[in-house]
């Protein structure tokens, strides 16, 4: 099993296309960092525009606000929406790509059960996803901490501001990246499932993206008839729950409670929904694949 996993990883990391995703992440992170380094103040002005009548925002304040923790949050906000494409690039190719190359039929004549084959393939996609996130964490979090320094983290929500002391931030990022790994694994499992049905990788990649885009639009729309009926069941609604780790509790006087999470049960519920989706997608993929006649 471990040997087979090594083979899969070897195959993934020997392919040039694997590095497209790493390059893309580096490029986006770099571009956001450069933009905020040189024009961060106007970005803060934009975000704080309806507070400037009540509060004093001097340049020092803006610089403090624009620290590595906030930059990473901004990057995650932007990038985690695009990440499904990068994940689908590999997991959508996982089975379909082998079918397309003609290596699937050869691999399946080897003394490996199809379930085991799927498990190894899927695990390899998950490891790739985690590697992408680690890469992103290195660039977006540690890179930004290096460039912008650290300070208290201020998270803007539509109805309030959360301020977290700098020593209370890192564990939240670890939790958030962990959660993001599960969220992206859901996308990975979806494109993996689609990959079973296809004979080239373009189909599953595009289909995954289409599903993610449509679901995300439904998740973000505020239409009352969808709010309670459809939205709670879409996996995309739960993919952003990593942000929940940056929503803190406050005492009666509005003072942040260090180490607190505003609504941990909600995050856990979202996490379980994603895990159910992963199980469902992967389970169906194995079920279909075990019955499938290999004609390619």
């Amino acid at each position: 099993m471990w040997k087979l996993l090594q083979i899969e990883l070897f195959k993934i990391f020997k392919r040039p296309r694997t590095y497209i995703a790493f390059g893309a992440i580096a490029a986006v992170v770099f571009l956001i960092q450069v933009a905020l380094k040189f024009d961060g103040k106007s970005y803060i002005d934009l975000l704080m525009s309806n507070l400037k009548d009540s509060f004093d925002f001097n340049d020092d304040f803006k610089l403090d606000l624009l620290n590595g923790y906030l930059i990473c949050f901004v990057i995650l906000n932007t990038l985690l929406i695009q990440m499904p494409l990068l994940v689908a690039l590999i997991s959508g190719d996982s089975i379909a790509g082998e079918a397309n190359m003609g290596t699937l039929r050869l691999s399946l004549t080897k003394p490996i059960s199809r379930t085991q084959y799927m498990l190894v393939k899927f695990l390899a996609s998950v490891i790739y996803t985690v590697a992408l996130l680690i890469w992103m964490a290195v660039l977006a979090l540690f890179g930004s901490m290096l460039i912008f320094g650290t300070n208290d983290m201020v998270v803007l929500r539509s109805e309030g501001i959360e301020q977290i002391q700098s020593f209370d931030v890192m564990w939240r990022y670890i939790a958030a990246f962990g959660y993001a790994a599960v969220a992206l694994t859901t996308v990975s499992a979806l494109s993996f499932l689609l990959s079973v049905f296809a004979e080239n990788s373009i189909g599953p990649i595009i289909a995954t993206m289409s599903i993610v885009i449509v679901f995300t639009i439904l998740s973000e729309m505020n239409i009352p008839i969808y709010d309670q009926t459809v939205k709670p069941y879409l996996f995309t609604s739960h993919m952003v729950a990593w942000k929940g780790f940056f929503y803190v509790k406050a005492d009666a006087e509005g003072t942040t409670i260090n180490g607190s999470i505003e609504n941990l049960p909600a995050i856990m519920r979202s996490l379980s929904i994603l895990l159910i989706y992963i199980g469902l997608f992967f389970g169906s993929a194995v079920w279909v694949f075990r019955k499938k006649d290999i004609l390619t």
Partner: peptide
Amino acid sequence: AIIERPDLYKYL
């Protein structure tokens, strides 16, 4: 076994 064309990993 070889089934039809022996397609292999071309990038390896």
